[in-house]
Amino acid sequence: MALRIVLADDDPVYLLGLMAILEGEGHEIAARARDARELRAAVPDTLPDLAVIDIRMPPTHRLDGLDAALDIRRSHPAVGILLLSKYVEPTHLRRLLEAGADPGTGGVGYQLKGRVTGADFVTDVVHRVAAGRYAIDEDIQRALYSSPRKRARLDGLTDQHRKVLHLMAEGLSNSAIAAKLSVNTKTVEGYVNIIFAQLGLPSDAGKEYDRRVRAVLMYLDSDG
């Protein structure tokens, strides 16, 4: 499946390299942006499947890319967002996850810039985000396992629950998780409610997605 992609990065060499890799896999680069302003204009013009965005861009060279991504999430929620950054910070990921609160929101990816040369970048990361799922850098996930105490927060979960939470953290919907685990959707919903209760996330009508985000963040980072 050929994807239509918008690329945003102020480094032309990096932009060309990324283009070569994505086009090499048969994807179409719908637009290239060199700063946040160009990116904001390119998305409504081209309506891509996916926007690959460097967090740090002109004009301020701070979080312009992230701010533009949050705007895109609000104006074009279906567009998948793949953030690239030289360091990954849970705080940035949280802002992006919290920006999309409806079902049918596009996927979210947050990866180190260096990962794009990895063998599985296009086949795994790009496709996952385009499919509406999550692709969170392993550096963030690693923080979870850095201390026994942090792991203990998830101690109350059985292996099965943990597997469900892990799939949630990959951005899978309940039905997708059900298909993956070869169980029916009702069973997954039951699991998910147990996980919420176990993590101390109170049920609150209409806040299903919010609870999901927080569960995922707790899973990804003890800080959630």
Binding site: A20, I21, G24, T117
Partner: peptide
């Protein structure tokens, strides 16, 4: 970051393209 890391990434691009 802008120097060494960028060179690393570009080197990665080249290796990846060579690999392809």
């Amino acid at each position: 970051h802008d120097g060494a890391q960028q060179k690393f990434i570009n080197l990665g691009f080249q290796l990846r393209l060579a690999r392809r």
